[in-house]
Amino acid sequence: MSRIQRPLSRASRTNPLDPPAGDAPSAIEAALAGLVSPAPATLAPAVLVEVGLADAWATLPSPLGEILVAWNGRGLSAISLPVDPAAFEEHFVADHRRPLHRSAAVPPSLRRLIERRLAGDRRATVPLDLRGATDFEQAVWRKTLEIPHGEIRPYGWVAAEIGRPAAVRAVGTALGHNPIPLVVPCHRVVRSDGLLGNYSMGGPENKRRILQVEGLDPDALEAAARAGIRYVGSDTTHIVCLPTCHNARRITAAHRVAFRGLRDATAAGYRPCRACRPAGSAAA
């Protein structure tokens, strides 16, 4: 640090901070010049995390047990199952090209937003830092955020909803690279044949576990899919839905009509539900 402007210290006293013997201005000035304190070691990392040039991480409880959560001032940047912290840091730095610092705890405001979101509160908007992802990946992840708690959608639905109906496989790849699983609920996106499919955060068993926590019955869903049931309609409203749509689940057994294809449903005079928009999944 340059101190060119500072008057040269004239005093050669043992400690410039001792009260000066005389009251000469130079003695006071020398004492003041000795008041430079080194900044705490925590200052620079805190600044860099706050502006998003570095990240912090800590642990949080989740439906899958303890998870590792990384964030910076721009938002949540990564979620992982508890792995060796060194491996997590190494992975993070390789993926994001930013340093990662261990922190004692997730900031309370961010923690509350994550907890509300994981509990299904869609009004809880968790800020996400998705820098470095492609526009396509961001579109896939943001669309996935719209899938309600306790409902599932096929890959083809996501592809159609973001205007790329032919990009079903690319949607699967993008969800496989989802850096923020659980909050970006890629576990709610399933194979177009209705089977639950794979999961980036610990494999298919974890996908079943989270869906169960959200109130779904994975075995029943897959059994219905194997039986060829892709859509469910109500013979009173003549509206057809995806099976887990909250509107479909209100249909009583007596009025429930199962369809193998959307064309069958429309041919029978049913119109697609405006909440779950099943037309998208038919394209796949």
Binding site: L35, V36, L53
Partner: peptide, 20 residues
């Protein structure tokens, strides 16, 4: 972004000292 950390490291002692 590539230079900001250098700015912080260069000026943190003086800004902290002034603030204290």
């Amino acid at each position: 972004d590539g230079t900001f950390e250098a700015l912080v490291l260069t000026h943190q002692d003086r800004l902290y000292s002034v603030a204290v």
